Simulated assay, not measured.
Amino acid sequence: MRIYHLDPEGRPFGGFDSLSRQLWKERHYLIAAMNGGMYQPDLSPVGLFVEHGFERQAISTKSGWGNFHLLPNGVFWLKGGRAGVAETSLYLRERIAPDYATQSGPMLVIDGEIHPRFLPDSDSLKIRNGIGVDEKGRVQMVISEAPVRFYDFALLFRDQLGCRNALYLDGTISSLYVAGTSRRDGLFPLGPIIAVIGTVR
Rank of each mutant, 00 (worst) to 15 (best):
D159Y: 03
S174M: 09
D111T: 02
G66W: 10
D111M: 01
L187Y: 05
F49L: 14
G171P: 10
S175H: 06
G81V: 02
Y39C: 09
L70W: 04
N73G: 12
L78H: 12
K62N: 15
H52N: 15
G137D: 10
V75Y: 12
G37K: 01
S144D: 05
V139W: 05
R11Y: 02
V50D: 06
G180P: 10
R82M: 11
K62S: 15
G64L: 06
N129A: 05
F157R: 00
H115V: 04
Q57M: 07
I197M: 07
L169M: 15
I96G: 12
R184V: 04
G53T: 00
V142I: 15
H115N: 10
I31F: 10
S104A: 13
G171K: 00
P12K: 01
I194A: 10
E51Q: 14
S144V: 02
I193Q: 08
P192G: 14
R27H: 07
L190W: 05
L169R: 00
D159Q: 08
V109M: 13
V50W: 11
L90M: 12
R93K: 14
I131T: 15
Y4W: 13
H28N: 14
G37T: 01
A179N: 11
M141V: 15
Y29T: 04
H5K: 01
R117D: 11
Y168W: 13
G180C: 11
